[in-house]
């Protein structure tokens, strides 16, 4: 079987026809429809959000933020992000294409480019540090980095300088990505493979998993670790992650056209 991070990689496996559809009532019941392949070739075992980190000093606590608004003039010179060629950014752009279409997203992307505080560089944590250091006011980053930074004494001050904000809470919800598992086409022990995925999505395994990697359980009703609980309740974009992954090539080429490839 295969376990891999990112819906895009799972989509690659599907495209290469390497996974088989499996039937499992337990998986159907446990994993929300948006986090499993429509033809049951993979199921999510954990999920994460790509959210915004706002400066506690310079952005009001009640300010509502959306991905769409990142292209607005009010954020000129205030946004930090890792390079747009990184798969997390490609996925975010893919979700914008899936929601708004290519033409709209291209205008948006150029707007975001115009608002960047600095050349896109480093990883997600470097963006949070950028906000903490005053280079920018908003950073784009995955949720688990915040947990990692909070639990490391050296990085904690930077994490405390920002407020994690789930965007689009009044609309479609925050962009999510997953780690998923599937059974390979030529697997000899399909039944055991399914059992393992069923175990990984059981409440007990979900609790352990989420506590280890600072991610969110995909299964509803599982107790979350204290570090993750600080995020509170939030609304997730209901689009199937497979539909987002399908837009990756369009997103990658858009990045090239916008002159954001590095």
């Amino acid at each position: 079987m295969v376990i891999t991070a990112n819906a895009g990689r799972l989509a690659d496996l599907v495209d290469a026809d390497l996974l088989k559809g499996v039937t499992s009532e337990k998986l159907e019941a446990a994993v929300p429809a948006q986090y499993q392949d429509p033809q049951n070739r993979w199921f999510a075992i954990t999920k994460r959000g790509r959210v915004l980190y706002a400066s506690r000093d310079r952005i009001a606590a009640d300010k509502t933020l959306t991905y769409e608004a990142l292209a607005d003039a009010e954020w000129k010179g205030r946004i930090c992000t890792r390079p747009f060629t990184h798969s997390y950014m490609i996925d975010l752009i893919s979700s914008m294409i899936a929601n708004h279409g290519e033409a709209w997203t291209e205008t948006w992307l150029n707007g975001v480019k115009a608002n960047l505080a600095r050349k896109p560089q480093g990883n997600d944590r470097a963006q949070i540090k950028g906000v903490a250091q005053g280079e920018c006011d908003i950073a784009i980053g995955n949720t688990y980095y915040y947990g990692i930074m909070l639990s490391d004494p050296e990085q904690r001050p930077a994490a405390e300088a920002v407020r994690p904000v789930f965007p689009n809470q009044d609309g479609r919800g925050a962009h999510m990505n997953i780690t998923g598992a599937g059974v390979t086409k030529h697997a000899k022990h399909t039944a055991n493979g399914i059992k393992l995925i069923e175990f990984l999505t059981s409440p007990r395994a979900q609790e352990i998993y989420a506590a280890q990697n600072f991610e969110f359980p995909v299964v509803a009703g599982v107790a979350t670790a204290p570090v993750i609980a600080v995020f509170g309740e939030f609304k997730e974009d209901g689009i199937n992650v497979a539909d987002v992954a399908a837009q990756r090539r369009a997103a990658a080429q858009m990045v090239d056209r916008a002159g954001l490839s590095s």
Partner: peptide
């Protein structure tokens, strides 16, 4: 870096 961009992101 372009090779990886085309390979991984564009899936080619």
């Amino acid at each position: 870096t372009g090779i990886f961009h085309v390979w991984i992101n564009m899936g080619s």
